[in-house]
Design a protein around this nucleic acid. Structure first.
Lengths: 218, 218
DNA sequence: CTTAGATGTTAGAACGTACTAATTCGTTTC
DNA sequence: GAAACGAATTAGTACGTTCTAACATCTAAG
């Protein structure tokens, strides 16, 4: 059996591998705010359980079994976020901490009911894909707003980071998923991006914000 | 702060005190299926935290703070059960194990939303009262079916025990909360109770079952 | 090629939660 | 009132998860 704690390590390992291609003890340590020796020994434990490939001083990798486990946890997390937003009326900035806890609930039936009632969603409230019940992941292929050209018309499809502050900022500017926007300008100087959207609002987004908005051509 | 584990001990202590008037190390040990020495040391720990009054070889008691904590956990448990039945479509026999886990979620907002969406219910799916958000308990005053007389007409208001087997049995007989029933006979021999209800179904309930059906005069 | 600094690992300790074995206390019965 | 039995407690152990301190390895800069 796999503990609550072990699940968090798997999830971190999966997320870091996803973003950066590989994962190190140091990165997991920072990601979970847990000291390196603790992470190190946990990696060995997960290796014993056949979920992680561990070799001294080498990058960490998940085994296939580990990947599946991790994807299933992420599935539960994202289904929960979707449920909290769609069925319970939470805002997209307020669901992460709750979902972090509920994802560890041990009950297939519980998550199955969520899935049914939501109509088997494929993305969560932040636009991230929800793995299927086998742990298969269909990554989306959206591009950051910073990679657009002036004149492009695009649709806001997902956020890269689910930072609470970013989400609150976007809400306050009425920028929600699905919003169509025209790219007016991209400043050479600071890479900030000016857009027009909705009822002709125009807005200039810092590079950091724009990097976190994933869009598709519209 | 109070851990998941500590919450379970408080809840057990509260439940046993509720039923039997007082609680002993031995009773908690059986209730939680945890050995006595473990219970003993936990009781000391909870005493240090001001939640339990502990004196060697004396019955255990909750302090006022402990009672409130316990009632608030029970509140979360029962709200959750109600939510699972009313909003997610679970049967009343299937919610206990899930609620046991969800009751430990740390988020006021989460349980508040449940409460709102349920319209501030005062009883759970088994007819047990839900403490208010201050931890105040309004006990119901229903009587077991065994205390009725032949000729009485009563309404089924709550179950005493939430045993999964009992609940499944009642479901299979279409006996749900709110059902009105006529008491036809009570056998002197084995204290079994015969009732008529619904579309003129008649049924004889063993003493053990009848003891667990709480009713009020109708 | 050597070395400084970052990263990884080992060793040892602490705390929470559980256990078994052994001992003490309290009560009931002769 | 002493024996016997169940309940409670103490002592010592184990395991999961965390830490700090010390040591080892890797890598990038000179």
């Amino acid at each position: 059996m796999i503990s609550h704690t072990e699940e968090n390590y798997l999830k971190a390992l999966f997320a870091i591998t996803w973003q950066k291609g590989s994962a190190s003890v140091n990165e997991i340590s920072k990601h979970l705010d847990i000291k390196m020796p603790t992470v190190n020994s946990m990696m060995k434990r997960l290796a014993e359980k056949g979920l992680v490939k561990y070799e001294s001083y080498k990058p960490l990798r998940l085994t296939e079994a580990g990947k599946k486990q991790a994807a299933l946890i992420i599935r539960k997390h994202r289904l929960t976020e979707m449920y909290l937003v769609e069925k319970m009326g939470f805002g997209w900035a307020d669901v992460h901490a709750i979902a972090e806890q509920i994802e560890h609930i041990q009950s297939e039936a519980f998550f199955q009911k969520m899935d049914e009632q939501l109509g088997f969603p494929t993305v969560d409230p932040h636009g991230s894909p929800i793995p299927d019940s086998e742990g298969n992941f269909v990554p989306n292929s959206y591009l950051p707003l910073t990679s657009c050209e002036p004149g492009d018309t695009v649709q806001f499809m997902a956020v890269q980071s689910s930072s609470e502050d970013l989400l609150r900022f976007l809400s306050s500017k009425k920028l929600s998923l699905g919003t169509k926007m025209d790219v007016l300008a991209i400043e050479k100087f600071d890479h900030s991006v000016s857009i027009r959207y909705g009822k002709q609002e125009t807005l200039t987004l810092s590079c950091l914000v724009a990097q976190n908005l994933l869009v598709k051509p519209s």
